[in-house]
Simulated assay, not measured.
Amino acid sequence: MNDSTPQTITVALGQRSYPVWIGAGLLGDHARWRAMLRGRHALVVSNTTVAPLYLPRIEAGLDGLRWSSFLLDDGEMHKTFANVGRALEALGALGATRDACVIALGGGVVGDLAGFSAACWMRGIDFIQMPTTLLAMVDSSVGGKTGVNLPVGKNLAGAFHQPRAVIADIDTLATLPEREYRAGLAEVVKGAAIGDEPFFAWLERHAAALAARDPATVMEAIARKVTYKAGVVARDETEQGERALLNFGHTFGHALETAGHYTALLHGEGVAIGMRLAARLSERLGMSDAAATARLQRLLESLGLPVAIPPGVDPPQLLALMRLDKKNTAGALRLILWRGIGRAEIVGGVHEADVLAVLQDAG
Results as ranks from 00 to 15, higher is better:
residue 3 D to L: 11
residue 5 T to F: 02
residue 7 Q to R: 09
residue 8 T to E: 15
residue 8 T to A: 11
residue 10 T to K: 11
residue 11 V to T: 02
residue 13 L to P: 00
residue 13 L to E: 02
residue 17 S to N: 07
residue 21 W to Y: 14
residue 26 L to I: 05
residue 43 L to F: 07
residue 44 V to E: 05
residue 49 T to Q: 14
residue 51 A to M: 04
residue 53 L to A: 14
residue 54 Y to D: 04
residue 56 P to C: 08
residue 57 R to D: 14
residue 62 L to F: 06
residue 63 D to A: 15
residue 64 G to Q: 06
residue 66 R to D: 13
residue 68 S to C: 12
residue 80 T to P: 07
residue 85 G to P: 03
residue 88 L to N: 07
residue 92 G to I: 02
residue 94 L to N: 08
residue 100 A to P: 04
residue 101 C to G: 05
residue 108 G to H: 13
residue 108 G to W: 09
residue 110 V to S: 12
residue 112 D to S: 13
residue 113 L to W: 03
residue 114 A to I: 06
residue 115 G to T: 05
residue 116 F to N: 05
residue 119 A to V: 04
residue 120 C to Q: 12
residue 123 R to V: 04
residue 134 L to G: 04
residue 135 L to T: 01
residue 141 S to A: 15
residue 144 G to C: 14
residue 144 G to R: 11
residue 150 L to H: 13
residue 158 G to H: 05
residue 162 Q to D: 05
residue 164 R to G: 08
residue 165 A to T: 07
residue 171 D to T: 13
residue 173 L to P: 04
residue 175 T to P: 07
residue 183 A to L: 07
residue 186 A to T: 12
residue 188 V to Y: 08
residue 196 D to W: 11
residue 199 F to T: 07
residue 202 W to T: 11
residue 202 W to P: 11
residue 214 D to F: 09
residue 214 D to S: 12
residue 217 T to L: 13
residue 218 V to K: 09
residue 222 I to T: 06
residue 224 R to Q: 15
residue 228 Y to F: 15
residue 229 K to T: 12
residue 239 E to I: 12
residue 243 R to P: 06
residue 255 A to V: 09
residue 260 G to L: 10
residue 262 Y to E: 05
residue 267 H to Y: 00
residue 278 A to R: 00
residue 279 A to Y: 13
residue 279 A to F: 14
residue 281 L to Q: 09
residue 282 S to N: 08
residue 283 E to I: 02
residue 286 G to W: 11
residue 286 G to L: 12
residue 293 T to A: 14
residue 295 R to S: 10
residue 301 E to T: 14
residue 301 E to D: 10
residue 303 L to S: 03
residue 303 L to T: 01
residue 303 L to R: 01
residue 305 L to M: 12
residue 306 P to T: 04
residue 311 P to H: 07
residue 313 V to M: 13
residue 316 P to L: 10
residue 320 A to E: 15
residue 322 M to D: 05
residue 334 R to W: 03
residue 334 R to C: 07
residue 337 L to A: 11
residue 337 L to G: 09
residue 339 R to H: 14
residue 340 G to I: 02
residue 342 G to D: 10
residue 345 E to H: 14
residue 345 E to C: 14
residue 346 I to R: 11
residue 348 G to W: 08
residue 351 H to E: 15
residue 355 V to Y: 02
residue 359 L to F: 10
residue 359 L to E: 07
